[in-house]
Design a protein around this nucleic acid. Structure first.
Lengths: 115, 115
DNA sequence: CCATTATTTATCTTTCTAGTTAATTAACTA
DNA sequence: TAGTTAATTAACTAGAAAGATAAATAATGG
């Protein structure tokens, strides 16, 4: 199943705090490898490996601009994760009020999907 | 930071499709180890290990009923993940209308922390 | 007490991961 | 062309993860 592979790779990539920090940085805009490496007390090859993991998970893409390889965030797998985790929303919204408003929200969404 | 540890463990636990399937099963209600193991072509100790990983990540808890140890879903870490990924919603909702309503939505929300 | 059922722990193997330093490739610049 | 900057690849190590089988623990029922 292709979606399972996407989730495997995405969850696995995001299990590392360095990689989550890189994602957070890229949310502010493109960045080069050196720029991304700057905040970390870690060698450049280590960062390069982290970027490769993120790229294989589809979470980033890389361009080419002279000798720089700017990285940019790709959110497809993030949406997969959001969709996956959304199924369990009712388990953390245990208050009946909140569950109620959640159910109303769903009904509203279904209506707007029809439209 | 405690929240980062929670995310590390939760993302890591969910990177495995067997463990995600166990979570999905537990969404339908409590289950024993043997019940959880049944769909998998895998030894019981292997399942027991997966459950330990999920438990250490706070994704399940275990009771005791005679010789059975019923597992139940605990959604706290799932909420952490949902909150984390939600920050990136604008990257997969590229429509300007949706982005606009997203921005209006977050104006009502709190300040956030780090990655 | 003994047997049965449910589950875990111990031990071992194989594979994967994250990091290191050193060497290499790629593109610009003087 | 030589030198500099950006980034990757190669080779290695230490530790974690996922699986197996066999043995141990826990609780129940005759």
């Amino acid at each position: 199943m292709a979606k399972a592979d996407t989730l495997n790779a995405a969850f696995s990539a995001l299990a590392d705090p360095t990689r989550r920090a890189i994602i957070a940085r890229l949310a502010a805009g493109e960045a080069t490898v050196n720029e991304l490496a700057e905040p970390f007390d870690m060698s450049l090859p280590a960062i390069s490996k982290h970027l490769k993991v993120l790229e294989r998970a589809g979470l980033i893409s890389r361009g080419r601009n002279a000798q720089w390889r700017p990285c940019r965030l790709e959110a497809g797998p993030l949406k997969e994760i959001a969709d996956w985790v959304e199924r369990y929303r009712r388990f953390w919204e245990e208050s009946f009020d909140q569950l109620d408003s959640y159910l109303m929200q769903i009904q509203h969404k279904e209506k707007s999907d029809d439209a």
